[in-house]
Amino acid sequence: MRPTVVFMTDFGSGGGAVLAGVVRSIDPELGVYDFDHNIEPYNIRQAAYQLSTVVPYWPAGTVFVSVVDPGVGTSRKSCVARLAHGSYVVTPDNGTLTMMLGEIDEVREIDEDANRLPGSEDVHIFHGRDVYSYTAGRLAAGMIDFEGVGPAYPVEKVVRLALTNIVPHLGTGWAEGGIYNFDVPYGSARINIRNREFQQVAGFAYGDLFHVAVMDGDRLIYEGEGRYGRTFGDVEDREAFLVGDIQPGERQMLRFNTCDNFIKAHAPEIERDQSLTVDWRVRFERP
């Protein structure tokens, strides 16, 4: 069975048609799937998170193409990362791989002389079509192996985003961490505290109340009380809440929100720039 090529871009609805066409022109038997073409334009942070939530659920050998590329045509690298479970990610090396770094076995820079759609040599602003889709199609079809992508370079050199500068700390009855991502439509903040450690180290159980303070240095962003639940329905309509996020096991972090939408009510500036929160500190403790 041929591998599937899975696309994610910020091109908008219908933006994947030409990318799929390039792949199918290489091998009509290849499967193609449009995961998400509605990433916010140029939002590499959002692309990094979305990629990390989807890749683990596809079979080994899947080739993911992520094109959120504000630096297209510049000196930033184009790469293919081979993951520990056998899949590949074709992407600009611009931070998109940040949340997958622990899963990468090897990364190679795409040799654009060997892996570029014929006839596109004078086009410098559409690598998603001319380089990434073409390379992904050839890799999925077996026309090149991983070594045929181009030269390897150290995984440590992969560009990573500064998601949060706050290192999580936990003790009996309290936990402190940083915000590494947001679910913008719903207003919730993803906290870099593992759900299991919140229970096992800090000692919180589902149903417990907590006091929370969100600080940017000395500036208070939000302070209040809420409830820790298994799911959204475990809390009252007017309560702030804390639940485990969507990833299972050791990868499950915490998700925090307020009844009035944390982002819109208390931090509207991050709708424009989520990087503003790299130094925001979130502390939970028993009331």
Rank of each mutant, 00 (worst) to 15 (best):
residue 74 T to L: 01
residue 138 R to Q: 14
residue 178 G to E: 10
residue 242 L to H: 11
residue 197 E to R: 12
residue 149 V to A: 02
residue 111 D to V: 04
residue 7 F to P: 01
residue 258 T to H: 07
residue 38 N to H: 10
residue 148 G to T: 13
residue 278 V to W: 06
residue 226 G to V: 14
residue 56 P to L: 01
residue 29 E to Y: 11
residue 82 R to C: 06
residue 272 R to E: 15
residue 231 T to Q: 13
residue 226 G to D: 08
residue 88 Y to V: 02
residue 86 G to V: 05
residue 139 L to F: 01
residue 95 G to H: 11
residue 281 R to E: 07
residue 189 A to V: 13
residue 11 F to E: 00
residue 253 M to V: 02
residue 195 N to M: 13
residue 7 F to C: 05
residue 164 T to F: 09
residue 229 G to W: 04
residue 163 L to H: 05
residue 273 D to I: 02
residue 189 A to G: 09
residue 108 R to H: 05
residue 166 I to C: 09
residue 120 S to D: 03
residue 12 G to I: 06
residue 104 I to K: 10
residue 5 V to A: 00
residue 253 M to S: 03
residue 201 V to S: 06
residue 69 D to R: 02
residue 174 W to L: 10
residue 137 G to M: 01
residue 75 S to N: 09
residue 90 V to M: 07
residue 283 R to C: 12
residue 32 V to E: 05
residue 211 H to T: 10
residue 132 Y to E: 00
residue 202 A to Q: 05
residue 28 P to F: 03
residue 153 Y to H: 09
residue 217 G to F: 13
residue 161 L to M: 07
residue 163 L to M: 14
residue 120 S to F: 10
residue 115 N to Y: 03
residue 94 N to D: 07
residue 157 K to Y: 04
residue 139 L to M: 03
residue 205 A to F: 05
residue 10 D to M: 06
residue 12 G to K: 03
residue 75 S to F: 13
residue 29 E to I: 01
residue 176 E to I: 09
residue 36 D to M: 13
residue 201 V to L: 11
residue 120 S to E: 05
residue 20 A to V: 08
residue 232 F to R: 08
residue 169 H to T: 15
residue 244 G to W: 13
residue 256 F to G: 04
residue 84 A to Q: 15
residue 230 R to E: 14
residue 14 G to R: 13
residue 19 L to G: 01
residue 131 V to N: 03
residue 44 I to C: 07
residue 150 G to K: 05
residue 114 A to C: 12
residue 254 L to F: 14
residue 274 Q to D: 12
residue 87 S to K: 05
residue 53 T to D: 04
residue 144 I to Y: 09
residue 92 P to V: 11
residue 237 D to T: 12
residue 97 L to S: 07
residue 266 H to M: 08
residue 57 Y to D: 11
residue 63 V to S: 01
residue 183 D to K: 07
residue 87 S to M: 09
residue 70 P to M: 04
residue 106 E to Q: 14
residue 221 I to S: 01
residue 61 G to S: 06
residue 88 Y to S: 00
residue 89 V to G: 00
residue 204 F to Y: 15
residue 121 E to C: 09
residue 83 L to D: 01
residue 140 A to W: 04
residue 168 P to N: 09
residue 154 P to M: 12
residue 276 L to K: 13
residue 18 V to M: 10
residue 230 R to L: 15
residue 280 W to Q: 01
residue 239 E to I: 03
residue 199 Q to K: 15
residue 189 A to L: 13
residue 10 D to N: 03
residue 193 I to F: 05
residue 202 A to T: 08
residue 41 P to K: 14
residue 287 P to N: 13
residue 263 I to N: 01
residue 67 V to P: 02
residue 199 Q to F: 05
residue 136 A to F: 02
residue 69 D to K: 05
residue 277 T to V: 15
residue 123 V to R: 04
residue 120 S to M: 10
residue 219 R to V: 12
residue 170 L to G: 05
residue 221 I to E: 06
residue 256 F to V: 09
residue 185 P to T: 09
